[in-house]
Design a protein around this nucleic acid. Structure first.
Lengths: 218, 218
DNA sequence: GTAATATTCTAATAATCGTTAGAATATACG
DNA sequence: CGTATATTCTAACGATTATTAGAATATTAC
């Protein structure tokens, strides 16, 4: 048995995962899927690509076993094949944020200093939310909220916030979150709330970051 | 400001990391570098590739900021740019082991069921090693041992084990480890020890796995 | 059954990547 | 200064990949 050939085989297998996460669009699809299962069309719309292209990328992800497909009536729904895949996405993005100056600069320019939480702050946020000292709102589409959300968070989808803004208190801190650090929904929500006199801020975390930090979802 | 273009830019940056880890040889180089810094030639020899090719791959890793180069006299030494890079390698390999049946099969066929440790077993191994109930040996080259090793582990490089076997006790369990689950040095060491009547077994962990589990190195 | 819809497969193109060989660069040593 | 050594740069190739369009498949609704 050739030691070299054996090793080559092992690294080639791992590289299958690497190849799967080497395309920007596939990474975007993974992040969207980290919010819950979606149809090919929903994924294509969300990632702003053609359905055919989405299908091709999903095929690659499926071949690398990062996602699984399931037919649901006329539609085919894709979902991540495990929590570890979502954690891998968080890991990749974190390494990129840590080492790629270009990404840091881009994010600083775009997002107004999103609040990054450490283990301590996360715990403290839960207790404040439990006591009702802050109101945590999940501004993602309600299906994603239903699929899992931060403890004590209320669903307040970005599309409904205009009509439902009255449900929120003006005398408490409001903490908004969405899909993660790359998602712009919480920033929009916070901008809208601030305009209307609410004390709102956003956090960088989404449910994938929360899970990757070994914290429970509701 | 175009939301779509912004997003594309962010995912493209992360994909730079993904592209860097999409080649088997680059993954192998990363794993070797996770054991400590090495020259281009050492890396090329270790990965069984031409120096020119190693240089080209290292250039890609450097462009993705996963490694940094430093000139040391006539040689250029490369090292990982952070512990998180080593953790990313462990993460990628773990996802591959978890989801790719082909890899599982390949590993089962090659390695005789390496012992995989969880958090509990790792802690228990440290206490046993501290008490001297087991002897943990690090069979990697001594430079890698010097760069960081498991607590209470003794250095016993594979190349020296033949001469130094008398240093080991026959009445205690011997636990061998090397670079990680893909490394064959501990398997060779254990086979040799068993042949000579020692009670030896190997564990899948290497220092990168240990670090990724948030355990301290010595 | 047929029509409509969602998705995948096939084919084709341009762009990118891995690998190799030869030339060029940078440092150390005499 | 000139030579030896280590590494990188350049150029070239064949192989792979992303993307697009058109054909094919599978399910639902009628």
């Amino acid at each position: 048995m050739d030691k070299r050939k054996t090793k080559d085989l092992l690294y080639e297998e791992v590289a299958r995962i690497g190849k799967a996460v080497s395309s920007p669009k596939r990474l975007e699809l993974l992040e969207i899927l980290a919010q819950g299962e979606k149809t090919v069309e929903a994924l294509a719309v969300e990632a702003s690509i053609d359905i055919k292209l989405a299908s091709a990328h999903l095929k690659v992800l499926k071949a690398a076993r990062l996602v699984v497909a399931e037919r649901d009536g006329r539609f085919i729904a894709y979902r991540l094949s495990g929590e570890d895949v979502s954690a891998l996405w968080v890991n990749l993005r974190t390494v990129a944020e840590e080492h790629l100056v270009e990404l840091k600069v881009a994010m600083d320019g775009i997002f107004s200093a999103p609040e990054k939480l450490d283990a301590e702050t996360r715990r403290s946020l839960i207790s404040k939310a439990r006591r009702g000292d802050v109101v945590v709102i999940d501004v993602r589409p309600s299906a994603e909220y239903a699929n899992g959300h931060l403890p004590f968070a209320r669903s307040m989808p970005l599309g409904e916030i205009r009509q439902r803004i009255k449900e929120l208190p003006t005398d408490k801190d409001i903490v908004a979150y969405c899909r993660g650090p790359f998602c712009m929904m919480s920033a929009e929500a916070v901008a809208f709330l601030k305009e209307h006199g609410y004390r709102a801020r956003k956090i960088a975390d989404g449910t994938p970051e929360w899970q990757a930090a070994d914290l429970p979802l509701a």
